[in-house]
């Protein structure tokens, strides 16, 4: 018996992680690697680089070097162009706005949370300090977005 379904067994889409702290990225990767899913990750350390990657400009002019991510994980506090500005630009761009953005940040400031949701962020997670909770949050994040939901890249043409 087969159900008509949009997804077939295919490689999970690219996860773009925009995070300036190498230690935080290390911790994130550590837990993502434990998932049975093999999720390709691209890591940008600042807002400008992330926007160039998404817009395919500068050193990313060749679309092969910058495939469309299926999900964007965004830290708010980035050097140079701030994460909030990056979110704004993504959600105001006709092509980029369909990509779900999950803010993964230390800020629990209600103003930040509200501003992000108003901007259209898909989900807001406060980075837990506790080691076990961090592991749990990342597991849930991966399970939810890559194993439960259908990401837009599955259905939207990957043409540039």
């Amino acid at each position: 018996m087969s159900e008509s379904s949009v997804t077939s067994i295919e490689q999970p889409p690219l996860l773009l992680v925009i995070e300036d702290s190498n230690e935080d990225f290390e911790a994130f990767q550590r837990y993502v690697r434990r998932s049975p899913l093999t999720i390709p990750i691209y890591h940008c350390v600042d807002g400008d680089d992330a926007l160039a990657f998404l817009d395919r400009t500068g050193r990313y002019s060749d679309p092969q070097s910058a495939p469309r991510p299926g999900l964007i994980l965004l830290d708010l506090n980035l050097p140079g162009t701030d994460g909030r500005e990056v979110l704004r630009k993504i959600k105001q761009d006709e092509i980029l706005k369909v990509i779900p953005v999950v803010v993964f940040t230390t800020s629990n400031n209600p103003k930040d949370i509200e501003a992000c949701y108003r901007q259209g962020v898909n989900s807001y997670i406060v980075k837990p300090m506790d080691f076990n909770r961090l592991k749990h949050s990342i597991q849930i994040l991966i399970d939810y977005w890559f194993d439960t939901t259908i990401l837009p890249t599955s259905v939207i043409d990957q043409r540039p």
Binding site: E23, D24, A27, N77, T106, S107, M129, F131
Partner: peptide, 21 residues
């Protein structure tokens, strides 16, 4: 206050995580 707390928390988190690692 926000920046101070955020900037202070980042290396703290690193110490916490790496000790566990």
């Amino acid at each position: 206050a926000y920046v101070a707390s955020h900037d202070l928390k980042e290396p703290l988190r690193g110490i916490h995580n790496y000790s566990n690692f």
